[in-house]
């Protein structure tokens, strides 16, 4: 049997999905215990860095470390990284909070910055989800290849293929 599944996905705080873990445990108790104890924080950090680096290679987007507010003052908190564009010169910061959840930081004082912040957030979210899916398939023993393409509308599409003998 083969299958097609479409998931709607959003960023949230990491947690254990008990019912799904129970289903995994019914098939593979050892793997379920391993997943339960898995510290995903380092994997999240790596996926965030990979997503930022991937977006930083897109024309018009620059990867950087700091963001500024409207008055040019640097953000004082710890950031995993940031993205800047001509439409958002002060940048969008990405941080990982103490619960492992990804948060965005930016000064949206100017109205034209708001739409660019939303665009970059969506791009980052898709890029992170692609990196997370890649990491998971690798954890499950698949050899993974990733391709990304940008549509004429500026949408980013990630195509992953995982193969296991």
């Amino acid at each position: 049997m083969s299958k097609i599944v479409i998931l709607s996905a959003q960023l949230a705080a990491p947690h254990i999905l008990g019912d799904l873990l129970a289903k995994v445990a019914a098939q593979d108790q050892i793997l379920a215990e391993w997943i339960k104890g898995l510290d995903t924080f380092p994997i999240i950090e790596e996926c965030v860095q990979n997503a930022l680096a991937r977006l930083g290679k897109i024309e018009g987007i620059k990867q950087c470390q700091d963001i500024l507010d409207y008055y040019g003052k640097a953000y004082g908190g710890k950031l995993a990284g940031a993205l800047k564009t001509d439409a958002l010169p002060n940048g969008l910061g990405v941080k990982i909070n103490e619960k492992g959840a990804i948060e965005f930081v930016a000064d949206e004082y100017q109205s034209e910055w708001k739409s660019e912040i939303k665009r970059l957030q969506k791009l980052f979210t898709d890029a992170f989800q692609a990196e997370a899916t890649t990491a998971i398939l690798q954890i499950l023993g698949y050899e993974v290849e990733v391709e990304s393409t940008t549509t004429e509308k500026g949408e980013l599409i990630f195509n992953l293929e995982g193969v296991k003998q």
């Binding site: 097609i4 479409i6 998931l7 949230a12 799904l20 997943i35 999240i44 990491a135 398939l137 954890i139």
Partner: peptide, 22 residues
């Protein structure tokens, strides 16, 4: 299920929008 449970542990909340066995 394995993919979804690890995605959630990595902070990606998922809901099944469509599922179909071929």
């Amino acid at each position: 299920n394995k993919i979804r449970v690890i995605l959630v542990k990595m902070g990606v909340k998922t809901d099944v929008e469509y599922s179909d066995n071929k």
